[in-house]
Amino acid sequence: MTCTEPEIRIHFAFAAPTRLWRQSLCLPAGTTVAEALAQSDFVREFPEFTDHFPAIGIYGESCTGQRVLVDDDRIELYRPLVFDPLETRRRRAGQRRQMRSAARPDGTPTRSGASPAGQGDEAIRTAQNAKCDGDDPVVQ
Results as ranks from 00 to 15, higher is better:
residue 1 M to H: 08
residue 6 P to V: 07
residue 6 P to K: 06
residue 8 I to E: 03
residue 9 R to W: 13
residue 9 R to P: 00
residue 10 I to G: 13
residue 10 I to C: 11
residue 11 H to I: 14
residue 12 F to A: 09
residue 13 A to I: 12
residue 13 A to E: 10
residue 14 F to S: 07
residue 15 A to K: 00
residue 16 A to P: 00
residue 16 A to Y: 03
residue 17 P to G: 04
residue 21 W to T: 10
residue 25 L to G: 05
residue 27 L to F: 02
residue 27 L to M: 12
residue 27 L to P: 02
residue 28 P to N: 07
residue 30 G to D: 11
residue 30 G to T: 11
residue 31 T to I: 09
residue 31 T to C: 01
residue 33 V to H: 14
residue 34 A to E: 03
residue 35 E to K: 09
residue 37 L to D: 02
residue 37 L to Y: 04
residue 38 A to V: 00
residue 39 Q to Y: 04
residue 39 Q to D: 04
residue 39 Q to K: 14
residue 40 S to C: 02
residue 41 D to Y: 14
residue 42 F to S: 05
residue 42 F to E: 05
residue 43 V to Y: 14
residue 45 E to S: 15
residue 46 F to S: 10
residue 46 F to I: 02
residue 46 F to C: 05
residue 47 P to L: 05
residue 48 E to D: 07
residue 49 F to L: 10
residue 49 F to T: 03
residue 51 D to M: 01
residue 51 D to I: 00
residue 52 H to S: 00
residue 52 H to K: 02
residue 52 H to T: 00
residue 55 A to H: 07
residue 56 I to H: 01
residue 57 G to I: 00
residue 59 Y to H: 11
residue 63 C to K: 04
residue 64 T to K: 00
residue 65 G to C: 13
residue 67 R to P: 07
residue 69 L to R: 05
residue 70 V to I: 10
residue 71 D to R: 01
residue 72 D to R: 06
residue 72 D to T: 02
residue 76 E to H: 04
residue 77 L to P: 00
residue 78 Y to P: 06
residue 80 P to W: 02
residue 80 P to S: 14
residue 81 L to E: 11
residue 87 E to S: 15
residue 88 T to S: 06
residue 88 T to P: 03
residue 89 R to I: 06
residue 90 R to T: 01
residue 91 R to A: 05
residue 91 R to E: 08
residue 93 A to G: 11
residue 95 Q to A: 05
residue 99 M to S: 13
residue 100 R to L: 10
residue 103 A to Q: 15
residue 103 A to H: 03
residue 103 A to Y: 11
residue 105 P to I: 00
residue 105 P to N: 02
residue 108 T to G: 15
residue 108 T to P: 09
residue 110 T to C: 12
residue 111 R to T: 11
residue 112 S to P: 09
residue 112 S to H: 12
residue 114 A to V: 07
residue 115 S to Y: 06
residue 115 S to C: 04
residue 115 S to G: 03
residue 115 S to F: 06
residue 116 P to A: 09
residue 118 G to D: 12
residue 118 G to N: 06
residue 120 G to M: 14
residue 121 D to H: 15
residue 123 A to V: 01
residue 126 T to I: 13
residue 126 T to H: 13
residue 128 Q to P: 00
residue 128 Q to R: 10
residue 130 A to Q: 10
residue 131 K to V: 14
residue 132 C to I: 08
residue 132 C to A: 09
residue 134 G to E: 15
residue 135 D to N: 01
residue 135 D to H: 03
residue 136 D to I: 12
residue 136 D to T: 15
residue 137 P to L: 10
residue 137 P to A: 04
residue 140 Q to K: 07
residue 140 Q to L: 10
